[in-house]
Amino acid sequence: MTSSSSEIGVGVIGLGMGRNMLGINYDANSRLAVRAICDVNPNAVARIAGEHSGQTLFQTDEYREILDRSDIEIVGIYSPDHMHMRHIRDALEAGKHVICTKPMVVSLDEAKATVDLVRRTGRKFLVGQTCRFVPRFMAAKKLLDDGDLGRLLFAESHYVHDMRPVFDATPWRASAPQDFMYGGACHPVDLLRWFAGDILEVSCYGQASGMDARYPGGKMDNFLINVKFENGVIGRIMAVFGLVEPPQHMNGLSVYGTRGSFVEEIAVFDKFMNQPDWTLKFRPEAGHGNEVLRYMRHFEECLIEDKKPTVNEIEGAKCISACWAAWKSIESGQPEKVFNDF
């Protein structure tokens, strides 16, 4: 692909998960083009540039050099979780639109600051909550939105992931360390919010599994979160990161409505005589690449048509706020209200 004036330039900070953004350069239907890549590890920059040798890519290990570039309109932030706030602030203040991987940030104060920054700068902002771009969850959402499942009775989601091999690939998660309430639980929290709306209150138990000695002893990595939604529905979330890889979908969703039940990829509808299992089959997708490209295309559409992204800074902030309340519930031993007034 060659640069043209109709293209929208993208710069990527963090080439672990962020390298998935480069796939957009091979999508002939997209005007987005990754033009700059940055990572603190120069070897990673060179390696990724080498893998995309047909592309013209500005390469750097200093993210501010990306923010200084006039041919970059969108910055993709894929740095470790605790660095997001700084990168979000600097990118927005540099006038860039931002796509930030999950978790948007790692505290309620940071969530409020992000919302304020987006308002003040008027830029567009999307949180890369990949679950909203997974086909089986998109299918479930369509069935609920179309009324096929009826009124929502109960919903639950989970994220269960054996982190031992993940620590091998991204040691910062053990050494920083990653806070799995934000970095992990944000997936099922956001997924459930997408289906059931704002979370009013949470009640959470946490536990340190001790499954991997690289993760700090005593720091919790397993969470059981019960939730009350503003619409009166109750639900629950399991976010477990110290465990032997379970024989389940890593991210799971069950949605129960007055007309049907949807569990993972199986739906049961009252309106079908004898209620047969209705199993949806989706094309297998490896990694998060397709999800990243889907939300990039959504973001592109929002830019061109001047719309607000679906997973915007408010959605991101409410998710982080629920995670923050869950930590507070663990500390207080009591249910805690969730701040949603962003």
Partner: peptide
């Protein structure tokens, strides 16, 4: 409809739920 988090004697965590619903798969 109920969601319950539990603690066992040795500190182990667990959870239980009951949800009447359209026949679940």
């Amino acid at each position: 409809t109920f969601v319950v988090n539990v603690k066992f004697e040795d500190g182990t965590l667990g959870r239980i739920a009951m949800a009447p619903c359209v026949r679940p798969p």
